[in-house]
Simulated assay, not measured.
Amino acid sequence: MNITQFSIETILDPTNIIEGKRYELLLDVEVDEEDELYSEAGIEIRAIVGVLDGNARVINYFIIDKKDNAYLEFELEEEEQQMILAFCNEELKSELGLI
């Protein structure tokens, strides 16, 4: 799995259901043709990240087939989840000066 592009947006939550700040990261991801996530049009991962007291965590993520914007019913492997969290941590640090 290789992240080729991304965007970050702040999510406002007037209800304060989740403490801290929340961000949505849209990650364009390349995967090998042999991977079950492979799509000719590509896939995107929508990660919701929470930051509290300098600690980030992935609250939820969604895998989307870019061909028809359909949500895929797959779960990332533990190693892939850790890679996404590390990427999000790094980008929140460098792009927004957080964490």
Rank of each mutant, 00 (worst) to 15 (best):
E44P: 02
F87G: 04
F87M: 04
D53C: 00
E90R: 15
K66V: 02
Y61T: 09
I3Y: 03
D65P: 02
L85M: 09
R22W: 00
R22K: 11
I64G: 02
D28E: 15
L92T: 10
F87H: 03
E40D: 13
Q5G: 02
F87Q: 08
E33M: 11
V49T: 03
E30C: 02
E19G: 10
L12H: 12
I84Y: 02
V29Y: 06
E80T: 06
D35C: 03
L26C: 10
I99Q: 07
G97R: 13
L52K: 14
A56R: 05
E90N: 15
L72F: 05
G54I: 01
E77D: 14
E24H: 08
A70V: 11
I99K: 07
N16E: 12
I63V: 05
E40R: 05
E24R: 15
F6R: 01
N55F: 11
I59R: 09
A47E: 09
E79Q: 14
I63Q: 08
T15W: 06
I64W: 10
L92N: 03
E80Q: 13
E73C: 04
I64V: 15
E80A: 11
Q5K: 15
E91P: 03
N69W: 09
N60I: 04
D28S: 13
L27G: 04
V58W: 01
E19W: 05
K66W: 05
F6G: 02
L52A: 09
D65W: 02
L76C: 03
